[in-house]
Structures are given as structure tokens and as C-alpha cells.
């Protein structure tokens, strides 16, 4: 509250006695202090300000001393008396260290071993051979004329079983089964690898089924 009215009340204290105040001014003053307080404070304001008339002057000797001090203080072209704070010295030292290391590092010839990491892959086109062995009875085997015996014959108790490789041209039944088998294999291979057996003549020749 006094913050707001401080200047107004002070101005009144310096210029007007309480009886000279307007009703509004009296209301303003009485909100803060009594009439007696106002009179006492007014007296203090007037007298306290009056005491500042007695002034003294500084002696000439004081100025001369200060002039000498100023002459000593005048900066030299390179003022070596200036003390740098520790952190500034540390920062400069660190800067020199980093720059020195950078120069030293850049002057070295780097030795590098280069390894050829390219892998050469060779694809060898080899014909696929598949041989199917089947068990036939001895009677059927007599009908066949072996063109080449590739496996040793194996004897059993009742029936003799022999392994032989026959050509499909000798038996129409074989030809029919061969065709079925060829188709089945071709379909299976096509499903698995996408490779057509039909294009491999050697494979086709090796697929023989004999009962």
C-alpha cells in the first residue's frame, strides 16, 4: 500500500502542513499515519535536508597521490603483469596439444594391406546321372538280353534276382512304363528344381523300369 502512495506522501511532507492538505490528501495521509506522525515526519524532512549544507572539499594532496597511482597503472605496450585465469591457460595448452597431434597424425604415411575379397565362383555344367535299380524275376530276366552288366548278380533261396541294365527298345511294356516314369520324374524335378529331365537325353536313357 505504501509502495503506491510513497511518492505522493513524501511530496506532501516536503511542501504542506497537515492543516493545508485537501480532504483527499488528508484521506490519503490518514490511511497510513496519524496527524501527529505527519507533523513529526514533516519536521524531520525539512531539518534533515537542511543539514547537508555544510560541505567539505578534498585536499589537493589527495589528488596528487591518486595521479601518481594512475601514472604507475598506465598499461605498457605488452602488459606482462596481466594474470590469466588458470582455466584460460589450461584451454590454450589443450589447444596446442590438439593442433600438434593433428599435424603429427597427418604427416604419417599410412600402411594399408589391401585384401582382395572378391570371390570368383565357377559354375561347372555337369550332366546329371540317375540310375534306377529294380528287382525282376529270373523268368523275366531270361527274356531280356543284357547289354551291359553293371551290378553283380545276387543269389537268393527260391528266386534268383539279377541286376541288369536293359534297353527300352526290347520290350513294349518297358517302353510304356519308361514313358510313365519319365513323365513322373520330369514332373517331380520340375516341381523341385525347375529343371526339365526331358532336355537331358542321358538321363532319359538311364531311366528304366523292369518288372
Amino acid at each position: 500500500m505504501i509502495d503506491k502512495d510513497f511518492e505522493k506522501i513524501e511530496r506532501l511532507l516536503q511542501t504542506k502542513e497537515f492543516l493545508e492538505l485537501t480532504p483527499a490528501e488528508k484521506e490519503l495521509v490518514l490511511a497510513q499515519i496519524s496527524e501527529t506522525d505527519y507533523s513529526d515526519m514533516m519536521e524531520l524532512h525539512i531539518r534533515a535536508r537542511a543539514t547537508r549544507n555544510e560541505e567539505i572539499a578534498p585536499p589537493l594532496s589527495l589528488k596528487e597521490k591518486l595521479d601518481k597511482a594512475l601514472a604507475r597503472r598506465r598499461p605498457t605496450p605488452i602488459d606482462l603483469r596481466t594474470r590469466l585465469p588458470l582455466y584460460q591457460v589450461a584451454a590454450v595448452a589443450l589447444l596446442f596439444l590438439v593442433v600438434g597431434m593433428a599435424i603429427n597424425y597427418s604427416s604419417e604415411t599410412p600402411l594399408r594391406v589391401v585384401t582382395n575379397t572378391i570371390r570368383e565362383v565357377k559354375y561347372i555344367n555337369r550332366p546329371v546321372k540317375q540310375v534306377q535299380y529294380i528287382v525282376i524275376s529270373a523268368k523275366d530276366a531270361q527274356k531280356l538280353q543284357p547289354i551291359e552288366q553293371t551290378k553283380p548278380q545276387v543269389s537268393t533261396n527260391d528266386n534268383q534276382t539279377s541286376y541288369s541294365e536293359i534297353t527300352p527298345e526290347t520290350n513294349p511294356e518297358i517302353l510304356r512304363k519308361q514313358e510313365i516314369v519319365t513323365n513322373n520324374i520330369q514332373r517331380a524335378l520340375n516341381e523341385k528344381n525347375g529343371v526339365s529331365v526331358g532336355e537331358d537325353s542321358l538321363l532319359q536313357k538311364m531311366l528304366v523300369t523292369i518288372y
Binding site: I33, D37, D40, M41, E43, L44
Partner: peptide, 20 residues
């Protein structure tokens, strides 16, 4: 500062009132 000055002036004025 305003509060302190006003309070101080009032206090001193009361003490010096007898010299009016």
C-alpha cells in the same frame, strides 16, 4: 526501499519530536 524508508522516517521522527 520505500517501505523501509517510510518506516524509518516515522520511527526517527517520533524519537526527535521533542526537538521540534
Amino acid at each position: 526501499i520505500k517501505s523501509r524508508l517510510f518506516r524509518l522516517t516515522r520511527q526517527l521522527a517520533g524519537k526527535l519530536a521533542i526537538y521540534k
